[in-house]
Design a protein around this nucleic acid. Structure first.
Lengths: 142, 142
DNA sequence: AATTTACGTTTACAAATGTAATCTAATAAA
DNA sequence: TTTATTAGATTACATTTGTAAACGTAAATT
């Protein structure tokens, strides 16, 4: 039973650091975020505390202090956010939005090739159009 | 100076209905959301009120009641959300996440072709890899 | 005309979030 | 060993969000 508590925007900053470092002490996280976000040390401590409660982080004691690790991979967390977002938006417009997004963000050659492969496969049984799912039922404007 | 107030998840439900209908009375929105989300009429009214404050909706008087319209297009709103999301996540992993996303969501043939065109163009000057931007500066783990 | 209903506005209230100060116990420095 | 510093835990507090009831006035019904 994986917990589904959402990670907030601020908490996300903390997670990114620990994901990237693999593990980290509060001091390390604080240093980086004080620089990046201009937060007070307390703020970062609070966020770490909340992430512990949400079980997004675990800590192993190292003398007096803790070393924190993430309980979920960055990939999985990102995937969840992205999927959740698109599921809450109009299915009919997802394609266009995605196209625009793809054109905006940085992608490596490898990323692009992977995307091309996925698309080449997907186009085989793609529908001619995707219906809008913004209204419940088949309520239509009369 | 377009206002940048974020639309919350609940408010988003209201917007989707009005976007789809083009314009709508509170009664219409209430009917649909009571059905879809099981909210009380009051709740929907509150959300409409907040969206008015955030200037995401405008109203034209029609007798006693109002007819609401969105001040921003669904496409643009979706685009913003999607862009904002990806900008807050690891640039290095965006590609993989996107690939997974593309494989999961519904896309029409046309959508796919559009994506393919974007990618074909983009691959020309794509970098070999995209750097992780989760840490500020060039702090590296020593 | 009297009454009920509908619609917009105001008020309510708990939980989540952003941001932080303070307290306490342990460790390091003097 | 006394003192200063650190690190985690507790408390704080304003704003936003989710969810809704109550209120006042215009409109529709009786």
């Amino acid at each position: 039973m994986t917990e589904e508590l959402p990670i907030t925007t601020s908490e996300w900053e903390v997670m990114r650091i620990i994901w990237t470092l693999g593990e980290a002490t509060s001091t390390e996280v604080i240093q980086l975020l004080v620089k990046k976000r201009d937060w007070k040390a307390s703020t970062v401590k609070t966020l770490i505390g909340r992430l512990m409660q949400k079980q997004m982080l675990t800590a192993k004691k190292e003398g007096h202090s803790n070393i924190y690790q993430c309980t979920i991979s960055e990939r999985v967390a990102m995937q969840r956010e992205a999927t959740r977002l698109f599921q809450n938006m109009c299915a009919m417009k997802n394609g266009e939005v995605l196209a625009q997004l793809v054109s905006e963000i940085q992608l490596s050659k490898t990323d692009i090739e992977k995307l091309q492969a996925v698309l080449a496969d997907k186009i085989k049984d793609a529908p001619d159009e995707v219906a809008c799912n913004c209204l419940p039922k088949e309520e239509t404007r009369e």
